[in-house]
Design a binder for these strands. Structure first.
Length: 585
RNA sequence: GGGCACGUAGCUCAGUUCGGACAGAGCGUUCGGCUUCUAACCGAAAUGUCGGGGGUUCGAAUCCCCUCGUGCCCGCCA
């Protein structure tokens, strides 16, 4: 709706500028402040003042007069206000918004016809998911959802690093150490079980007797070599560890929820020989050279100082080499590829891009979304190997437990009479607790560093998921109360209060927000929208009673339709973020 | 040392792409509101050298240069 409105405004302004003999390159279309009664405005008069030899307000007046919106469906009027030309919505704008927002798929944009692979998380399967890693799946899953809302065919991919040194160390440690020498696992889950071997192994390599460490290193090197050569027996040894740990991690990620369509293993690109084909092609490149037995690329032309080593002096490949084959696979299978990466990966990503360019790929099809690290208070970083950090399972358990306390403490003074069972309470606690954690992460700009704080992550008031979810529950409450007594009617003409109009205008913006968030790869724009929207709904809730006895029947029916449209908008906006919308709280 | 990010109210953050209407929220503080569709809510008040300095512009939180502070990266690791 908003998008159609914008199209009409753009066409009208462009035509008017053309008529008046002004350039049409800059239309100056922007969203006005909240207290201005317009959906869009143009500030172009500022720029034309010099050429026109008249002050901006005068140019704005001239432009407003020249704008012809008689054929427009959604733009009712162009009116100058100071240096701005404001575009006001027609009755049809509100009427169609009310109708369209009733649909289950409200906020979904037209199909782009494009397939997009969103690779996220891709954490090495070395142990339980900790909070430091959690930004990636939450951000990645929300991004995938937003891109789906924007009309793309999205595949969620977890790239499994099963061929590197870390997995070789893990496999060696798992086969070498005796469970009796390990501490009790922190949780009865396979990832918590096996990470003990990994930690023990790393400790041994750092502090063990030189001779024994040397022998261990030889065994680790043999595993790496076996993988690189595609040796089936080695692959099976490593796979046992990888799949077991990954299974445990998947359970945790699923709670967020972050689920994947594909788990693509790194060893796949060794077994099908594509990595070695990449090596051969790179050796032919004018940027390739051999130094001290290692093959590398000179990336000066891409303003990257450091060379890109793609073949070790012992002729084995590196993670980055295999990642090249991986990305060529993506280019074959999908139209676009987006990767969610920690900011520590930026140099690697730039080098990868340059190498893909050398291999003749169109790297415009590949984009990255970088996020800053989550640190512990005191500046300590979270590490699986060292066992520092807060486990994601612990955070989610605590969040759900606090949410359950909150739900139960409110049961006594509930006005709404919907008899929540224990099962309901548990479900709501799950939705609210996990939603709060997820919202806390997804609402912030990814480039800003986060210091983890229990109270901040578990704050259920103010700008949080529960605040937005509560607005949704309120809407459901009204709809439930009205069921059978009042039939909603799609009649926006009787919705004339400021709060009603503001809510409709806010509903109409939803598709635009999806469009912008997808375009910029910024799910947090949707999060910002949800809390502004909840504000608008709460204002309506306060100002406009729906079911009160003294409300006119027509108004009651129309307000009920408006409540349903708001409910649909809240539910879908939360869904685009991967947050559940409880019907009662 | 070089590269990339970040710095907005006491705290947590929107707004910065693409310069434009008085710089906005929440928490906290002070005051007020539940016999009225759910108070995880709402209303009112107070709170700012938009890190600092310079520049461009009719106009800068937003663009450019310098500077300070913080984080990340600079492996034949992943």
């Amino acid at each position: 709706m908003f998008i159609a409105f914008r199209r009409e405004v753009e066409a009208a302004v462009e035509a008017a500028l053309d008529d008046l003999g002004y350039p049409t390159g800059d239309l100056g279309i922007e969203e006005p402040p909240a207290d201005v009664l317009a959906v869009l405005a143009s500030s172009v008069a500022y720029r034309l003042a010099g050429e026109a030899g008249a002050p901006p307000p005068q140019v704005a007046g001239e432009l407003a007069d020249a704008v012809d919106v008689t054929d427009a469906k959604y733009v009712a009027e162009a009116r100058s206000q100071g240096p701005y030309v404001n575009f006001r919505p027609s009755d049809a704008y509100f009427a169609d918004t009310l109708v369209e927002a009733q649909a289950d798929d409200w906020g979904h944009l037209a199909d782009t016809g494009e397939s997009v692979v969103v690779e996220h998380t891709s954490a090495n399967p070395t142990g339980p998911v900790h909070v430091g890693r959690a930004r990636n799946p939450i951000l990645g899953d929300a991004l995938a959802r937003v891109l789906e809302y924007a009309g793309n065919d999205v595949t969620r991919e977890y790239y499994v690093n099963d061929a590197g040194r870390q997995m070789a160390v893990f496999t060696w440690a798992y086969e070498t150490f005796d469970e009796a020498d390990l501490p009790e696992p922190e949780r009865e889950k396979p990832d918590y079980d096996l990470v003990r071997y990994y930690r023990k192994g790393n400790e041994f390599l750092e502090e063990g007797p030189d001779e024994e460490v040397e022998a261990a290193e030889a065994e680790i090197a043999a595993i790496i070599e076996g993988l690189d050569e595609g040796d089936e027996a080695t692959y099976e040894r490593v796979e046992e560890v990888v799949d077991t740990v990954l299974g445990g991690m998947q359970d945790t990620l699923g709670r967020l929820p972050a689920e994947f369509d594909e788990f693509v293993k790194e060893t796949r690109f060794l077994r099908d020989d594509s990595t070695h084909e990449v090596v051969d092609r790179l050796k032919e490149s004018e940027h390739a050279y051999e130094e001290e037995g290692a093959w590398q690329l000179d990336l000066d032309d891409w303003d990257i100082e450091q060379s890109f080593v793609f073949l070790r002096s012992d002729d084995t490949t590196l993670y980055t080499t295999r990642d090249l084959a991986h990305h060529e696979w993506k280019f074959d299978e999908f139209d676009r590829a987006v990767t969610v990466l920690g900011e520590d990966q930026e140099l690697h990503a730039n080098k990868l891009n340059a190498a893909l360019d050398i291999l003749g790929n169109d790297t415009d099809r590949l984009e990255e979304l970088f996020y800053a690290w989550v640190n512990l208070p005191g500046g300590e970083s979270m590490s699986t190997r060292e066992g520092t950090g807060v486990d994601m399972d612990d955070l989610l358990d605590e969040a759900v437990s606090r949410a359950e306390d909150a739900v139960r403490s409110r049961l006594g003074d509930r006005v709404r009479d919907d008899d929540l069972t224990d099962e309901d309470v548990e479900r709501i606690a799950e939705q609210v607790g996990i939603g709060a954690v997820r919202y806390d992460v997804v609402a912030k700009q990814p480039t800003k560093a986060i210091t983890f704080d229990w109270d901040d992550a578990l704050d259920f008031e103010g700008q949080s998921a529960p605040f937005v979810q509560y607005a949704h529950a309120r809407a459901c409450g009204i709809l439930g109360e009205a069921a059978g007594d009042v039939e909603p009617r799609l009649d926006a003409d009787v919705l004339t209060d400021d709060a009603e109009r503001a809510l409709l205008a806010s509903i109409a913006r939803f598709p635009l927000v999806v469009e912008a968030a997808a375009e910029d790869l910024e799910p947090h724009q949707v999060a910002t929208y949800t809390r502004e929207f909840a504000d608008d709904f709460n204002a309506f809730y306060r100002e406009c009673p729906v079911l009160a006895d003294d409300v006119d029947e027509d108004v009651q029916a129309a307000r009920l339709a408006l409540v349903d449209a708001a409910r649909q908008t809240l539910a879908n906006a939360l869904d685009a973020l991967g947050i559940d919308a409880p019907e009662s709280m």
